[in-house]
Write a protein that binds this DNA or RNA. Structure first.
Lengths: 227, 227
DNA sequence: GTCTATACATAGATAGAC
DNA sequence: GTCTATCTATGTATAGAC
């Protein structure tokens, strides 16, 4: 698997996202023409993510968003009923696409050792292709309303569950050491998240996606793999 | 080293903090009587950290802070000249104490292998004893003014440098494998941060400080240590 | 030193013209 | 569908009494 191939998959999926958003929010989105609606949703989301890579969602005003997206404040409110709804909408959709792509990728793996490598690599590739999205989802999760916060946590735990299952499989097949599975999955997740949370650091140091992924795989295999 | 001993060290330092804040902000803090000033600074900081464990600093209004601290809005402005200054003040002081305690602890270690274990354990203990502080410093760093943001990044890199130096020492003494040192330090930092960023998770799962620290040490030693 | 009252700015959201 | 103009709420910060 090469990063560029991966990027294409994500871009295709990215086009679907706005379609899904539209479907799932037919009640609050007032625009009738589908094509126009999707185009503008993409503009709005891109603008939001661009602004929020520099300041927080709270700090972004609707006026900011209007300037960045090139749409008027009035027009924006045809696509969501409140600023909070915009936050929820972006987050929910981001989680969905991420989860889908990740599951698809891992299904290709043969045996726990390969699945584990594939899971790590896919996640890092995915968060690279969707960096602003991942960063936004992580950092703004706490500003969600309570019920959506719950969904965000479930999603986080579900991703972790993918790794828990792979590791358990490996232990049963005697290819992995019998370590604390839950903690192992947790620290894997921590290392995966660092890639998109500390982008500035890795970029400055010219660490490539593959450098990082290979290193994480090395750490995880040193801990788990029976030689 | 036991966690409870560690907590005492931190608590002592915590008393110093407000004294330092007072000294370093003599121009903007209008209260003359030292004792009163320190007492109220502690009230203000505690209230801020308590509120900001639930919502963002931006989302916290001065009215919120007034209610939580039991001081009037007018009185609060005798301790800082703007809300942003309060943010800077808390962050700067948090960084300083954390850095000092960590350096003190590591100095006690003999040889790179022990230093590495000590560094990991101290950091996790420290972030446990000062959890709200660490969380706040991490999550609100992006809302700092540009120049303070730079200081926060420097501080982050300095902590990492501690681990880089230890690992380099270990490689030279042939007790550690010759891995990519910078990446090794980065993922160690990532695992350390997870402890205070995902507190809810570890608490729910009843993972203790020592469980976590021991596991991280296990992962790191599996990767680095030559048997 | 601390309070109450208030000025002033900015933000979210909507109404109605085009 | 999109724009401009505007209403209203909320928030920061200060002035002046106690």
């Amino acid at each position: 698997m090469i990063y560029n191939d991966f990027k294409k998959i994500v871009n295709i999926s990215k086009e679907e996202i706005s379609g899904q958003i539209l479907e799932q929010n037919r009640d609050s989105i007032k625009i009738k023409k589908e094509k126009r609606a999707i185009e503008n949703l993409i503009r709005i989301i891109d603008a939001t993510l661009a602004i929020c890579s520099k300041k927080s969602f709270q700090a972004m005003s609707i006026r900011d968003l209007s300037a960045e997206s090139g749409m008027s404040r009035g027009a924006l409110y045809s696509y969501f009923t409140s600023k909070e709804e915009l936050l929820v909408l972006i987050q929910a959709q981001g989680r969905e696409i991420a989860n889908r792509v990740l599951c698809d990728q891992i299904a290709h793996g043969n045996g726990p050792a390969e699945k584990l490598r594939l899971g790590i690599k896919s996640h890092i590739y995915l968060s690279e292709a969707m960096q602003t999205w991942f960063y936004f989802t992580y950092i703004e999760a706490r500003n969600l309303p309570k019920d959506e916060q719950k969904r965000a946590i479930e999603s986080e735990l579900q991703t972790e569950k993918i790794f828990i299952d792979i590791i358990n499989e490996g232990i049963q097949e005697k290819v992995f050491r019998d370590e604390n599975v839950v903690l192992a999955a947790s620290v894997i997740k921590a290392m995966l998240q660092d890639w998109y949370l500390k982008r500035w650091k890795y970029q400055n140091r010219k660490v490539s996606v593959d450098d990082y992924a290979d290193f994480v795989i090395n750490v995880v295999e040193s801990t788990l793999l029976i030689k």
